[in-house]
Design a protein around this nucleic acid. Structure first.
Lengths: 142, 142
DNA sequence: AATATATTGATATCGTGTATCACTAATCTC
DNA sequence: GAGATTAGTGATACACGATATCAATATATT
């Protein structure tokens, strides 16, 4: 059940936001797109030996700001990045292979709305991650 | 609306788990308990000048493992710690003053159960944080 | 009290990420 | 298309949270 991306490719995303199209950025975008699965920033640096670490991090940051990448945390808090497919969503992350799934659950939003009536103050954001052991990993463990 | 802790004090928690009762641990536990609000590990070190940084971090880790402390992340990912009051819960964190609230919403659990039927694999955990601007801060901003 | 072992704390190191800054390259203007 | 302008690059240093190491020390056990 792999949904096709509805978003423009990463480099176009950057272009649309008025950033210059540079070689390093093209390479970062390309590697992220061919990777597919979730990744750490350092792993990306590994795959981009010719590109400076700072540039890799900077590009990641721009893409996260643009909403094209999601930054998510593993149970221990270690950050990972993954391509965003749908607009507003949450993630399932396999704690064994780091495979990321997305879900959009209106119930989550409903929880937040009802919570809005209970909590004092104003809700300004939220974060939700669901940790799973994916089918593949379950199979391998059996 | 400050609910009284239903948990044993922190040092007892450590004792119950078979750890030795040392002076540094007693001091860490004491400072956390008198602090009340959420805190960063570094702030705790500040308040515990006689105790080694490593020991402070180690003790925090033990308490998190024991479920007596919660590690939570601010919107930018910066970690904070807060005393756990009820067994299984989520947090509201004020993005301005870091004040932490706890909520236990059965709806969240319901979402997870229904999600369990949708996602492939097995849910092994989750994380949810709700970011707010609390009443006090709203008042100060007006 | 002596022993075994858990804990400490100074220090080094790691992982993730940002600041600086001289240099380079992309875009703009003519 | 050449030159000017400005954004972007990358090497380096640094910040921050946290853990590894390891000799010295304190706690629990006998």
């Amino acid at each position: 059940m792999t949904s096709a991306p509805i978003r423009p490719d990463l480099i176009t995303t950057l272009e649309d936001r008025g950033y210059r199209l540079t070689d390093p950025r093209r390479r970062v975008a390309e590697v992220i797109e061919t990777r597919g699965e979730s990744f750490t920033a350092e792993a990306l640096c590994e795959d981009l030996k010719g590109v400076g670490r700072a540039t890799v991090y900077r590009t990641i940051k721009l893409l996260v700001e643009a909403g094209a990448l999601c930054k998510l945390s593993m149970p221990d808090g270690a950050p990972k990045y993954s391509l965003a497919r749908v607009e507003h969503h949450h993630h399932t992350v396999c704690v064994r292979c780091s495979k990321v799934g997305e879900f959009r659950d209106s119930t989550v939003e409903r929880v937040l709305r009802s919570l809005g009536r209970e909590v004092s103050g104003e809700i300004v954001g939220h974060r939700m991650e669901v940790y799973v052991t994916c089918e593949n990993c379950l199979a391998e463990l059996r």
